[in-house]
Design a protein around this nucleic acid. Sequence first.
DNA 1: ACGCGGGAAAAGTATATACATGTATGTATA
DNA 2: TATACATACATGTATATACTTTTCCCGCGT
Lengths: 243, 243
Amino acid sequence: MSALPDTASPLYEKVKDYILSNIGTGKWSKDSKLPSENEFVAALGVSRMTVHRALRELTSAGFLIRLQGVGTFIAPPKPQSTLIEINNIAAEIVARGNRHRSEVLVLEKITPTKELSLSFEFAKRAAIYHSVVVNFENDLPVQLEERFVNPILIPDYDKQDFSKTATYDYLMQRTPVTEVEHIISAVPADAEKARHLAIDVGACCLLLHRRTWTGAVVATISKLTYVGSRYSLGSRYSPSRKT
Amino acid sequence: MSALPDTASPLYEKVKDYILSNIGTGKWSKDSKLPSENEFVAALGVSRMTVHRALRELTSAGFLIRLQGVGTFIAPPKPQSTLIEINNIAAEIVARGNRHRSEVLVLEKITPTKELSLSFEFAKRAAIYHSVVVNFENDLPVQLEERFVNPILIPDYDKQDFSKTATYDYLMQRTPVTEVEHIISAVPADAEKARHLAIDVGACCLLLHRRTWTGAVVATISKLTYVGSRYSLGSRYSPSRKT
DNA sequence: ACGCGGGAAAAGTATATACATGTATGTATA
DNA sequence: TATACATACATGTATATACTTTTCCCGCGT
């Protein structure tokens, strides 16, 4: 006899459903721990690997928390946070019905500073690509993008024509991003930025600092400077019921 | 000998990294299919179950597409946008190990301007709550938050003590947010903001404009002004495949 | 030329087994 | 009493094996 439903779905899915519905009905309280894998094995008559897979998937979906050596617990409700979406600037400008153009100021291979090498999590000081591009909306400069790119992942970055293809598009198609770090701050423009963006020194700019990873490897580091008076980052987002 | 890295991480993670980085370097073209599970077994010297787990997790993360009986393929590039997470400022300050304190400057019921009423999508000019709070990190003002709150959804907003409970916490617990709109820009401080935040007039500030909906009803409108030199918004995010 | 059948190949699932790793707890010893 | 060790138990990982399900493709017969 088994407590599992008699459907066509695979066994580990039935186990997941069984556990989820019993969480829903409060069979196991929020504080006490769930049965151990071996107890599930005895109760449901399936192998431990199958129970383990069900529990692992429920854990990665955010329903459970498992502590090795301790047990399995019901996860507390999700932390309160809101998400904001950041889009490709070229696509945004075009979507607004405006003209987008970019000017490549720098595209080179450099030896990174010690600090930059550290940001790339390099053990040794290895060469990296460096690009500086200004993005225009209707011939008005709105963003200065400085990128550092890991040549291990994108070996031919310096051979591209980024006045035609946006750097962002090129990178996204080249390498899968597994993790992103963002830091947004507001800074006054220094002399160089002021010159390239045609604004006064000290004018307010939005600085978006971004690091992307592919697996354990840092793929790119970007510093995107938006002219505060001409550009803002916007998004409308529906938080979905995802884990 | 093996092509896998010699780290402490579990084997299936090494296999995942191996596959991800080879997708990154273009070893397998976007159209052709990846090696079969058995080919990975032969090439890497691990069991088929381990390869299978690595491939299954990369598939559920959206990097691969697998067809039973056919093979494994690289998934088409993800929608080109990245998400950034914005957290509760009080929680962030505490998480950094610093002291958080807030000072309530205004907490009142007002008749909105025509423009504000429009932002709330009100048909008629109805009264709304208005609050202005300064948030301190170690007694240094870092954020000025001005909020407008819909009294239909949160009827007792003006009776709260927001020097104890953060407005954000209170609102989040009161009403579910189904949609959020964000606009981030960089602006110079005007005289009032400069006074409340103890900065010079014209100093760079990060302005986060937020509207939240509960169903079809606008719940809150917030203008959060961060002192650029003292605070930045940061997040690290693992994109998961949605839809 | 066309269709059909069967085999090969690929991913999907399930199990038994073994060992690794982390945690709590009880007991013996200083 | 307090510390150290042994032990039991929990989850985590890895493998070998077997079987299922789906698809593709080749060859055979008409």
